[in-house]
Amino acid sequence: MSEEVWRRLLTAAGALFLVLFSLAPFLFMLLVSASGRPDFLTESVPFSVTLEHYARVLAAAELHFPRYLLNSCVVSLAAAAAAVLVASLAAYALTRLPVPSKMALLFGVLALSMFPQVSLVGHLFKMMSALHWINTYQALILPYAAWVLPLSVWIMVSYFLQIPRDLDRAAQVDGCSHLQVLARVLLPVARPGLFAVFLLAFIFCFNEFMFALMLTRDAAARTVPVGIALFEGLHGETPWGTIMAASAVTTVPVVAVTVAFQRHIISGLTRGAVKG
């Protein structure tokens, strides 16, 4: 009996540690973003709640923050949509059509994620400069889509493999073309998978930092992670309240989406990793 008690205590302590460990920095971010002074911890001033940092982040023109948010959303949505589309087509061919050396192709695609981002970024910069695409959306959308494709293809393939072949055979007999089979049979059945790929691709693109840092030069073209990373005060004093408010404005929706769709995300992640 006493072993059981110990076990329970240990489990509870572990669970408490887990919650504190994963949430503490996030809560600290929220706390500072809403406090009147950044030094509330060390000075004996009463903690005062204020929304001025949020107001500044959303309204101050020199911070460009709403613009960063818009840029991030446009780029991530477009890249994730492209990745879903391209990955579905590829997964259809890889699971339903006679492609020579499928496995080699699939592992070849996976091996691409071996390349460190930094081994791409220099040449990408040259390419985008030559095309005069620096500071444009397409300069980020296209590399992002390519960057998330290996994972997207692997997850889509794993979903498509689970769909019984009888379903698409029946559609074939009815005279559907490949594209029709894909659009009317496979994609509707694999909708959770489609959604998982889209969410993961979106999160990866939204979080991407190095490409965005190198391929955007104007403040107006930056994405949120770059914008926040480069926030500095005018007079050498770092505006922590503003930075934390900007971080909170960005991460609260991300966290909300993650919480709302956790099942899709976890199923996508585990397919991508465990079965890979």
């Binding site: 996030f26 979080n207 993650t258 919480v259």
Partner: peptide, 17 residues
């Protein structure tokens, strides 16, 4: 869900915290 949160926040942003 708690476990997903650190992963979902952009690394460059949580680094600021």
């Amino acid at each position: 869900v708690c476990l997903l949160i650190p992963w979902a926040i952009p690394a460059a942003i949580s680094a600021r915290t």
